[in-house]
Nucleic acid binder design. Structure first.
Lengths: 157, 157
DNA sequence: GATAATCGTTTACTAAGTAAACAATCTGTC
DNA sequence: GACAGATTGTTTACTTAGTAAACGATTATC
């Protein structure tokens, strides 16, 4: 069994030879997220997708007729913040706002054919960008990472 | 006007056991980072520290006489972005900009006594906030998380 | 000694979000 | 059926965290 490398003494309270900062999960989480974010833009920027548009379109494709409030809830952002995202997706012809018979307040969202096509293509680009970024990880590490990130997310109030 | 029948059959297009989005590490990384970030502010907001001020002060305490350029490099941000952070730390009396004998361009940064005290206190608050957030993780998971985040960070160009 | 590079800084800009208010609409209670 | 209260999408104003380009002062290089 390949044991963890020698660089895992980080739990000591008094050993200060490496930066304190590197020992904080929050800081490392932010830096790792920034690496992903920058690479995402490199990979999908030319396709005209930012992370927010991609996330929103993904959920719209997957949950047809979802309302804006529900989508905002799933994304963890405010309704007001979602308006601009949907505006842009609609402006590109990827998404349509549609009235809902029973309730005239809500706008149901549906991906157009173009939107679905663009999403399926973008999804493959994102998969490949992630595969590259994560290529140094063992399958075990990848599994643990996914599980841990989910645990952290679920600990949210 | 694109017709969109109420009965959408797009479910058969994808193998969609759960949301595509949940399968992307980048998205989960962002959500997890936001959980940490919000909790960090809850924990240290009343102490007047944001994540940026905390990170900068941490490195200044650990590397006395560090220059602003070097600090920016370590933090992974632009020099121009660091100015406001140092301004604030200096305004609170936590940090002093000092001239360096050999080179009149640079400003060496040093934590004041107040700055060191405030940092040591804040560090304990951060440790406790992280401990709480990560309490659902096994020691193995925590080790793997730290290692994986580091690997991702080091893959940066 | 001219030219290039570096440092801290300012200014203008961008991205991504929140918070509060608003009109329109829906729901539950009397 | 009327009416108080909640909900929806939206606008507006604001905040946060950063980048990019230019600048004067200085230092390094040829």
């Amino acid at each position: 069994m390949p044991r963890a490398t020698a660089a895992t003494q980080s739990r000591s309270l008094t050993e200060d030879r490496e930066s304190d900062l590197e020992g904080f999960v929050g800081y490392n989480l932010k830096r790792a997220y920034l690496v992903f974010s920058a690479d995402f833009r490199r990979a999908l920027g030319r396709h005209g997708f930012g992370p927010r548009q991609f996330s929103a379109l993904s959920l719209i494709v997957q949950f047809p007729q979802i309302t804006q409030s529900e989508l905002a809830r799933k994304l963890g952002i405010e309704r007001s913040g979602l308006v601009a995202i949907v505006d842009e997706l609609e402006g590109r012809g990827f998404v349509a706002r549609m009235p809902v018979p029973g309730d005239r307040r809500v706008q149901a969202l549906a991906a157009t054919k173009d939107g679905r096509t663009a999403y399926l293509h973008a999804r493959e680009v994102v998969r490949s960008h992630e595969e590259t970024l994560l290529s140094d990880l063992t399958p075990d590490e990848l599994d643990t990472l996914n599980g841990v990130l989910r645990k952290i997310r679920e600990s949210e109030a």
